[in-house]
């Protein structure tokens, strides 16, 4: 951890549903530094989405606090908070009745940005997520492929120039090639725009490849967190199990494709 104050801090946050019968998030404390790319990994139902929805107040915690830029989010107007945090939804969440341009420009429009500026911004964002302007601007979401739709989702999250982007399994439903390309592209954007990103994934390999730091959740609890290297030193059996898959994949790939290293040049 760096010594700078965290941009996002979870402090003993808990959230239960159905009259406390389900503890979706259980006493989680976690800091995210400005500019960091954090991945949250865990099985289905482990509380990842719930933890993320707490950040922009789509739901409120039962106890604990979430601090963003030294402000308790409970004290901030939720509408205003959501407009300055980008959110990429698990299923895309594009509005089917709005054109791609309208989808991307929605948050600036809510903020009252003049239409001319929105149009310019939309074009800029289409470039940024590598979609052809003229070809996609006026289409409806259902006319795009899954990968293109997720690119639009990313563009929409970035439209109001947020400092923070939250992504809930953004590439989960895509084929491996598209997913890889999108992941790399997003990683570049994250760095280029100086974003702070929290990304949920159930895929440890993806987390290792994209994130600076990884938080592991299980049954609502934060089980472990740290850089991939730090995690690999963990003695927790579940963390070990999660790391087992990428390890095996790496070994097998190493064995089967020994000369592949030269072709892949994205790693720094």
């Amino acid at each position: 951890m760096t010594s700078a104050p965290p941009l996002i801090a979870f402090q003993h946050v808990s959230k239960s549903f159905d009259g406390r019968a389900i503890k979706a998030v259980d006493d989680v404390s976690l800091d995210v530094t400005e500019g960091e790319f954090l991945a949250i990994v865990g099985g289905s139902g482990s509380g990842k989405t719930t933890l993320m929805r707490l950040v922009n107040r789509l739901i409120a915690p039962n106890s604990g606090k979430i601090i963003i830029a030294s402000e308790d989010v409970a004290q901030v107007d939720p509408i205003e908070l959501r407009r300055r945090i980008g959110y990429v939804f698990q299923s895309g969440g594009l509005f089917p009745h709005m054109s791609i341009a309208d989808n991307i420009g929605i948050t600036p429009r809510l903020l009252g940005t003049p239409p001319r500026e929105i149009a310019a911004r939309v074009d800029e964002l289409l470039d940024l997520v590598r979609l052809d302007r003229t070809q996609h601007r006026d289409r409806l979401p259902h006319e795009l492929s899954g990968g293109q739709r997720q690119r639009v989702g990313v563009a929409r999250a970035l439209a109001a120039k947020p400092r923070i982007v939250l992504m809930d399994e953004p590439f989960g439903a895509l084929d491996p090639l598209t997913r890889d390309a999108l992941g790399d592209d997003y990683r570049a954007l994250h760095r280029g725009l100086g974003l702070t990103t929290i990304m949920i994934t159930h895929d440890m390999t993806e987390a290792i490849l994209l994130a600076d730091r990884i938080a592991v959740m299980r049954s609502g609890k934060l089980l472990a967190e740290g850089t991939p290297t730090e995690l690999s030193e963990s003695t927790d059996p579940y963390v070990g199990e999660l790391l087992g898959t990428p390890r095996r994949q790496a070994e097998r790939l190493q064995m089967l494709l020994p000369k592949d290293d030269a072709a892949r040049s994205s790693a720094p």
């Binding site: 789509l58 959501r82 969440g93 809510l110 903020l111």
Partner: peptide, 8 residues
């Protein structure tokens, strides 16, 4: 939820 999330 997406509508809420984008700040509506």
């Amino acid at each position: 939820e997406a509508a809420q999330g984008v700040g509506m």
